[in-house]
Design a protein around this nucleic acid. Structure first.
Length: 477
RNA sequence: GGCUCCAUAGUCUAGCGGUCUAGGACGUUGGCCUCUCACGCCGAUAACAUGGGUUCGAGUCCCAUUGGAGUCACCA
């Protein structure tokens, strides 16, 4: 039995967007599930769209997410080169073979003539004009150095059917197929041609890609047939949408892997989430490690309809991955984000302890910690709390006592600080909340904080805690 | 517009003719827990697009309608 070989073939036109990453993920998973090979090929036949650095982004993203390819430009392999532009010489040879067999032909039509072609059903269609040129005329124009392209000669009758692993049998009338260009006037192959030649030459027998290729696949199959090559198995995938009408677009900052990382998502959550977009394990699993994904992946679970990217669910998954991190791992991840807050005077480990369970993405850290560096006048109405029966008046009475207690705390740690506050409540014969609530407000000026009064005090340190208390007391009078 | 594909809650989905008074998750929401918030736990909310068939029986099969997506480049 021949080994399964599938490939991911992005074009280096920018960063790797989520749809592409998912294609890579599914391809990787499917290959590995079947003891097959996962191959990376860079499709850069469109020199006009080439973006510097894009290739490196592809390598980095794939390696970072664990989608290590068995063969590729930077890792080598027996079927190289793995960059299309470096295989340029191959294509013309095969195109000529097709011209010879009548499956393709030279076309010298000018842009003007192409544009003057009548539109049929809302789309212009090439009219096979140059198919009828005589051999002599073609030879003459070639010798003269006329610009030309090579077109595929589509049959006018009949239909082409193929089987797609997720969409089933797809049949297209051959008359619907245009004589697409195989070799451009710059001598480079179009994607439509290079893709088929490369897949065959690289022994790719399983093609996984977006649904946008579903209806052009018959053209590729006709090419395989013309060469007498065996057609690969096809697995097309539904698109990932931004909303019901629009595909996730590269233009929007939220569409790429790198942007998501920059927004504070972890790679495990991103991979986990996109695996679930358009695919489902048959059990109710939601959070799955890469290994679990590998164990559960099955193309039978791939959905047919478009799915909308939901940042909320991604955030939820992200929070799960954040929560399960060890304190050390969390500190590593969070460090750059915490550093953005200029918290030189605060204990980072303590900060981490307070926020780890309270954020869904690292980007929220800045907001959560602002109170550490900013402490100004605030609305005394914050002291109002129905449940704790507190208000500015009760705070005015309690706060000076809190300050006194704190001033006498020997070991500045949460347990002792908390103990001091509880002790005060007991001495006053009031509920804990009557002391805890105003203390927290006085220390932060915020209705919600990542930690209670004593935890915040511990973090602020003795000096800052007493300073803030004094300030808040003064503001109440 | 032609062609191709798709259609379960706001969103991601399970369901492959009877076990569906439709399951899970996100979201929203009520409560418990609680030094506020968050976490966690318990509960609630909301869906088979419409109309015809086929069948003893349809979310599941067929057709039509409607809606949506993809494609129709010297882009991939």
């Amino acid at each position: 039995m021949t080994q399964l070989r599938t490939r991911f073939a992005p074009s280096p036109t920018g960063y790797l967007h989520i749809g592409g990453l998912r294609t890579a993920l599914y391809s990787y998973l499917y290959a590995k599930k079947n003891n097959g090979k996962f191959i990376l090929r860079i499709e850069d036949t469109d020199q006009g769209r080439y973006v510097d650095g894009a290739v490196e982004i592809i390598y980095r993203t794939l390696h970072e997410t664990g989608l290590d390819y068995d063969e590729g430009p930077d890792v080598g392999g027996d079927y190289g080169p793995y960059i299309q532009s470096q295989r340029a010489d191959e294509y013309m040879k095969y195109a000529l073979q097709l011209v010879e067999s009548g499956h393709a032909y030279y076309c010298f039509c000018s842009e003007e003539r192409l544009e003057s072609l009548p539109a049929v059903n809302g789309a212009r269609r090439y009219d096979k004009h140059c198919l009828h040129l005589s051999k002599e005329e073609v030879a003459m124009r070639l010798a003269r150095g006329d610009k030309f392209v090579i077109r595929q000669n589509m049959p006018q009758t009949g239909s082409t059917t193929y089987h797609d692993a997720v969409y089933g049998d797809i049949t297209i009338e051959n008359s619907e197929l245009e004589d697409q260009i195989l070799i451009k006037s710059d001598g480079m192959p179009t994607y439509n041609f290079a893709n088929v030649i490369d897949d065959h030459l690289m022994a790719i027998n399983c093609v996984m890609r977006g649904i946008e290729y579903l209806s052009s696949t018959p053209k590729y199959n006709l090419l395989y047939d013309a060469f007498g090559w065996e057609r690969p198995m096809y697995i097309h995938m539904p698109p990932i949408m931004k909303d019901a009408q629009h595909k996730l677009s590269k233009r929007n900052g939220d569409a790429s892997y790198e942007d998501l990382i920059a927004k504070g998502f972890v790679k495990e959550a991103i991979i986990n989430y996109i695996a679930l977009l358009g695919w489902s394990p048959k059990d109710d699993s939601e959070k799955m490690s890469f290994d679990e994904l590998l164990a559960k992946f099955d193309i039978g679970g791939i959905n047919k309809s478009p799915s909308i990217f939901d940042p909320m669910k991604l955030a939820w998954l992200n929070s799960l991955y954040i929560k399960e991190m060890s304190p050390e791992a969390f500190a590593d991840y969070a460090s750059p984000w915490i550093d953005k807050c200029y918290l030189k005077n605060f204990d980072k480990a303590l900060v981490c302890k307070l926020i780890q369970g309270r954020i869904e993405t690292f980007a929220e850290i800045e907001d959560k910690l602002r109170f550490l560096t900013e402490f100004g006048p605030f609305d005394a109405a914050l002291y109002d709390n129905q449940k704790q029966k507190t208000n500015a008046d009760t705070a005015r009475e309690v706060l000076p006592l809190v300050k006194e207690k704190f001033a006498r705390v020997e070991h500045w740690n949460n347990d002792d600080l908390y103990g001091a506050l509880i002790e005060l409540a007991q001495q006053l014969g009031v509920k804990n909340g009557k002391v805890l609530w105003p203390a927290r407000i006085a220390l932060t000026g915020l209705a919600a904080t990542p930690g209670g009064a004593s935890e915040i005090a511990e973090l602020l340190g003795r000096e800052e805690t007493l300073r803030r208390l004094e300030q808040s007391i003064a503001r109440l009078n």
